[in-house]
C-alpha cells in the first residue's frame, strides 16, 4: 500500500467520503427520491406555530391527481389530520419521525390539514390548506353555507355576547329521566331543533307553564335530562378530549392544562349551560369566539360532529361524565 499508488487510492477514498457522503444524502433526498416517485411528493415540515407551523401551509392539487404528503415533526409530537371530506387521521408523529399519506382527491374543495394534539399555546393556529382544484370548472370554491349560523345571523343573535352565569344549579339528571313520564312536556321541548335554538332556562319556563303543580326542582331535573338526552358516543368523547380538553378540561370544567395561557378563562360548561343556546355553542365551535382564544373548528369537524359535540357539552354541563 505504500508509494504513489496507495497514496492516490487513499486520496480518492478521502474525496469519496468527504464529498460523496453529503452529496449522496442531499442528492437522494432532493433529486433522486422525487425523481423515482411516479407522482408528486410534498414534504411538509410540522413545527409549533411559534416556529412556523406547517410549511408549506398551502398545497394545490388537481382533482384526480395522486399526491403523497409527508409530514415531518421536528420539535414536539404533533397529531396530523385532514378535515371533513378527506377525513384522514395520521395519528401522532413524534419529533424526528415522518408520517405520510397518499391520496387522490376526487372532488374539488378546500380541505384543512391541522394538528389535533395540543402542542403549544398557539396549537390551534397550526393549520394548512389543501386546495383541490378542478381545472375544468371555473371560479373559486367557497365553503358551503351553514344553515344554523345563517339562521342566527338572520335573527340578529349576538353569537359573541357574554353568557350569563347560572350559579348554583346542579340538576339531577337521572331523577329527570325518572320523572319525565310524570310531567307534561310541551311538544317544542321534544324537538331537537327547538332545543337547539332555546336555552334550558327557556325550556324550564315552558315546562313550568304546562305543569304549574309540579315542584321546580323536579322540572329542573327534567329539563336537564331533555337537553342532554342523547348518550354521547365514544367517538364524540374522543373528539372532545383531543380538541377541547386542553383548555376546557377533561370534564368541561374550564380547567385544562392550557387554561391559564388563554386570553380569557375558558368556559366551564356547567357555569353557563342554563342560559346558553345550543346553536350559539354550535356557532362558536364552527367559527370560533371573536375576541377570545376560542379557535374555529368549522373546517375540521363535520356539521354532524359539531351537533353531537354540542349534545355532549350539555351532558358535561348536567353532570354526565
Amino acid at each position: 500500500m505504500t508509494g504513489k499508488m496507495g497514496n492516490r487510492a487513499a486520496l480518492v477514498v478521502l474525496v469519496l467520503v468527504l464529498a460523496g457522503i453529503p452529496a449522496s444524502i442531499v442528492g437522494y433526498q432532493y433529486w433522486l427520491r422525487p425523481a423515482l416517485a411516479d407522482h408528486r411528493v410534498v414534504d411538509i415540515a410540522a413545527l409549533v406555530p411559534e416556529n412556523g407551523g406547517f410549511s408549506p401551509d398551502l398545497i394545490r392539487v388537481g382533482v384526480g391527481e395522486t399526491i403523497t404528503l409527508r409530514f415531518a415533526a421536528d420539535d414536539v409530537a404533533h397529531g396530523i389530520a385532514i378535515g371533513p371530506g378527506l377525513d384522514i387521521d395520521l395519528g401522532q408523529i413524534d419529533p424526528g419521525h415522518v408520517g405520510e399519506v397518499t391520496l387522490t382527491p376526487d372532488s374539488p374543495g378546500v380541505y384543512t390539514y391541522y394538528c389535533n394534539t395540543w402542542c403549544s399555546p398557539n396549537h390551534w393556529r397550526m393549520r394548512g390548506i389543501l386546495e383541490v382544484v378542478d381545472p375544468t370548472a371555473a371560479g373559486a370554491v367557497g365553503a358551503p353555507p351553514d344553515p344554523i349560523i345563517e339562521a342566527l345571523i338572520a335573527a340578529s343573535v349576538d353569537i359573541d355576547a357574554k353568557p350569563q352565569l347560572a350559579e348554583g344549579i346542579s340538576p339531577d339528571r337521572p331523577n329527570g329521566e325518572q320523572k319525565l313520564e310524570t310531567v307534561e312536556v310541551p311538544p317544542g321541548l321534544l324537538d331537537p331543533t327547538w332545543r337547539l335554538s332555546h336555552t334550558p332556562a327557556e325550556g324550564l319556563v315552558a315546562l313550568q307553564a304546562q305543569n304549574p303543580e309540579v315542584a321546580d326542582d323536579v322540572l329542573t331535573d327534567v329539563t336537564a335530562y331533555l337537553w342532554s338526552e342523547p348518550t354521547p358516543t365514544v367517538e364524540i368523547k374522543e373528539l372532545f378530549a383531543k380538541n377541547c380538553a386542553a383548555c376546557h378540561g377533561e370534564l368541561g370544567a374550564g380547567d385544562g392544562p392550557a387554561a391559564t395561557s388563554t386570553l380569557e378563562t375558558p368556559v366551564a360548561f356547567a357555569d353557563v349551560a342554563w342560559f346558553r343556546r345550543g346553536d350559539i355553542w354550535y356557532a362558536k365551535i364552527r367559527r370560533g369566539g371573536m375576541g377570545t382564544d376560542m379557535p374555529n373548528f368549522g373546517t375540521l369537524f363535520t356539521i354532524e360532529e359539531t351537533r353531537l359535540l354540542v349534545d355532549y357539552l350539555w351532558s358535561l354541563s348536567f353532570g354526565e361524565s
Partner: peptide, 13 residues
Amino acid sequence: GYEIDSRVEPGIS
C-alpha cells in the same frame, strides 16, 4: 426498574 411506560397528551390524563 418497574418498566412502566405511559404516554400522555395535554388534556387527557
